[in-house]
Nucleic acid binder design. Sequence first.
DNA 1: CTTGTCCAGTCGTCTAGAGCAGTTGCCCTG
DNA 2: CAGGGCAACTGCTCTAGACGACTGGACAAG
Lengths: 258, 258
Amino acid sequence: MLELGEVDKTSDTPAFKQIATALREAIGSGRLAPGDKLPSETQLREHFGVARMTVRQALGELSAEGLLVAEHGRGVFVRERPVVRRVASDRFARRHREAGQAAFIAEAEGIGVPSVDEIEVGSEPASADVRQALAIPARSRVVARRRRYLMDGQPVELASSYVPLSIAKGTAIEAADTGPGGIYARIEEAGHVLAEFSEEVAARMPTPEERRRLRLPAGTPVLTVRRIAFDANGLPVELTDTVKAAPSYVLEYRFPAS
Amino acid sequence: MLELGEVDKTSDTPAFKQIATALREAIGSGRLAPGDKLPSETQLREHFGVARMTVRQALGELSAEGLLVAEHGRGVFVRERPVVRRVASDRFARRHREAGQAAFIAEAEGIGVPSVDEIEVGSEPASADVRQALAIPARSRVVARRRRYLMDGQPVELASSYVPLSIAKGTAIEAADTGPGGIYARIEEAGHVLAEFSEEVAARMPTPEERRRLRLPAGTPVLTVRRIAFDANGLPVELTDTVKAAPSYVLEYRFPAS
DNA sequence: CTTGTCCAGTCGTCTAGAGCAGTTGCCCTG
DNA sequence: CAGGGCAACTGCTCTAGACGACTGGACAAG
């Protein structure tokens, strides 16, 4: 019989979140393998001692993340190829609403990343790699911002953002707190209307340093995303390199074809 | 007062879907502007004559799409700007229009199509995962095409393509050689105008089988891409799962003038 | 004027049911 | 033995409540 733990009703964590966590853990540990059928909603309801709607809320969360597939009349199964989609975060949404910068920032900062626990800001000479990406000359300097993002207390992402010093000079971009609307709002204030960005996604093994900071088990790959923002003149204005703990991140884009 | 229409309880469309559609329409038509506050859940409940959970289900759907933001104690608001993943790529759209199907194929199959050295085509029962992605019922069959791509003699990519047998039946899709224009041309000939596709990218370690076929050194991760093509009616018509040895994958986006 | 308290409104979570609609396995029939 | 039909099981939709937590404004006390 599948071991799934219990729900602590005295906890301030909602019961459905606890159930979702228990199921996630069972999948992560391999007790539930890809293709396996989960206990039915009724069985889970009895096991955890909650109402069926509560179980469904947990299952719905995991389905939205792409970990589970429910099939009418058959059961709920662990996905054979687990994927995790982006989920909007209310907290971020609120910040955006207040700042009026919703779409670009939401996308560029990564929707669904709730908190930052480390931050490091300073000007430095740009590496050859960064210079090439930002199309700036040799010996140029950039303002670098390095952060670690947490979700539910677990590190999920390391981000390094670079802005040419020629753009950042004398603005709040040089400060740890970039103010309302974040860094993109400051870049626009500096006269660069954001128009486009490109993303390059790759898979690789983490460095030992990255493994430590992301608390990754040995043998786990990371997903890296390099994003470059361009202004209306096609000038690169910002570069963000992100290292994401895999497979907790997946991109999903839909293109109208015409 | 906001006009939102009614729910037809005799319809076979679920009530919460009808409510979601009504709200989407109100936002699309501008009766609900970005930043506007929606009627409260209680008011919507009374207006549509349904239980509150049903209203919440509709609101949850729109929140997941990024159209709405709920804030505890304040209300539900229309997002200031649409989420980026719904924004068209001009580059892609333009090329599609100019070159017709060739562009869609080049984009979908990967630019700089390499050579294929293994191919395997046949009809088979769809796995739960594939059925879910293609939105087809249990026990459905699909035409599966499994290929290995080579670049300069080195294997770079394993691709598995699935088309519902209901679409492929009696067409060249069932043949190893799909003829000029490839599989997408045959799908269009079958009456499905291709309209959009979605992509999901993830990183993971290869299976031993994949490692062997891609001739990967131990400890090297792969990049996986799942692409689903939809016709003009929003019906999924084809699914491609790709496992790439090549380290990176590029996506480009452009923001609408705003 | 400032501060703190209270309260109505709102969303978040949860319970305890109900009927409906797919899926599957089994039994019965021919 | 093959096929049809039935019944059990599953997830899907929905109802009708309950209480808690958060927000924002009214109002009283300082």
